[in-house]
Amino acid sequence: MSERRRPIAKKSPSAYHHGHLREALIAAALRLIGSGEDVNLREAARLVGVSPGAPFRHFRDKAALLAAVAEETMRRFRREVGGALDAAPATPAARIHAMAMAYLRFALGESAYFRAFARAGELGFFDSDFYKKENQETLDSLDRLILEGQQRGEVASGDLRIVHLASRAFVYGLGRMYVEGHFARMGLGEEDPLAVAQQALSVFEQGLLRASPSRPRGPSSRAPRDTSP
């Protein structure tokens, strides 16, 4: 039997200042995303504490609300990454590390936005030209740093696509594990989550295995043959 979701509490009309309804509706949409609920204007209005028609002053439909969430999510992410790169040394390795830490700060510090970020495809974020452009610029920056790092011997050699995949998968996985409660279940809940993530990232960057993993060879690596009649 699946776990029942707790209902999301409605905010009173005094929870936002008039003139900030748009921002309040975006925040409501994030609450719905974070709880796994469907995002719609009527429910967002209920959470904010306004009439069902009030959201239409700012958003013509659900897609417009989600586009606004997408753009705000990407702005926050790019601001975190941009600040980290501005402060990082010029070497590819240092800048890739800075990007990774920026991603983790975003995932752990902006968990509502990270949940939306993680569901970008499902939520239709890639329908936003702004989101697609800003996202692609981040990915292109990582590719350039990997290639330059490989040329300078600072990054592991290999297919750019695979190195890129490994880099993103690790920080994305750490972010998901945090927001889904794995840190706490592993006994790390009392520690600074960013410090925990940074230590795990250090293991990844230095290389997990101290010896080459053995590879199965010969017939033993294949499934046993069925000799029954």
Rank of each mutant, 00 (worst) to 15 (best):
H18S: 15
S141F: 09
S128F: 06
T73C: 14
F125S: 03
G121F: 10
R215M: 02
E137G: 14
L104C: 02
I162T: 13
I96L: 15
A94G: 07
I26P: 14
L147M: 14
E72A: 12
R57G: 13
A54M: 02
T227G: 10
L142R: 12
G36F: 10
F204C: 03
F59R: 00
L142S: 11
F106P: 01
P89G: 10
E190G: 10
A67H: 14
A211K: 05
K11Q: 15
A94P: 08
R176L: 15
R144F: 01
S221G: 13
R144Q: 14
A98H: 00
R222S: 10
A223V: 12
M74N: 08
I33T: 08
A67T: 15
V163Y: 05
A24W: 06
S220L: 05
A112M: 09
G181N: 04
S12V: 10
S212G: 03
M101W: 00
L142C: 12
P13V: 06
F204P: 03
L174D: 07
H20I: 10
F114R: 00
A24P: 11
R215V: 06
A44T: 09
A63V: 11
G19H: 08
R168Q: 14
A200H: 06
I162G: 10
G173A: 02
A197G: 04
K11P: 13
F117V: 07
Y113C: 09
L188V: 07
G53N: 08
G207E: 00
A63S: 12
R222I: 08
D226V: 04
Y131M: 02
I8H: 03
A100N: 05
D140L: 12
I162E: 14
L21T: 12
L108C: 02
F114P: 02
M101C: 11
R217Y: 01
L108M: 02
R75H: 14
P92Q: 03
A64M: 07
K132W: 14
S221W: 00
P7A: 04
A27M: 09
R42M: 12
L139T: 11
S141I: 08
G53I: 02
R46G: 09
L165Y: 05
R76G: 15
L194F: 13
V163K: 01
F117E: 04
V69H: 04
R225F: 05
A93G: 09
L85F: 11
E190L: 10
A88K: 02
V203L: 12
V39D: 04
F106S: 01
R217I: 05
R152I: 07
A93S: 10
E110N: 09
K62H: 08
L47S: 03
S12A: 15
S14C: 09
A44R: 01
G109A: 02
Q206M: 09
I33Q: 00
R210G: 13
A15C: 12
I96R: 06
P89M: 05
S221Y: 00
G189A: 04
R144I: 07
G83W: 08
L47Q: 02
S35D: 13
A156H: 11
S202H: 12
P55D: 01
D127Q: 14
V163W: 05
V203H: 13
S111G: 08
P13D: 06
A29C: 07
P224A: 01
R105F: 00
R119S: 14
F117G: 09
G153E: 02
P224S: 01
E71Y: 14
G34Q: 03
R119M: 13
A64Y: 07
R161M: 11
H58L: 04
R210S: 10
L85Y: 10
R22C: 11
E137V: 15
L32N: 08
R119I: 09
A116W: 05
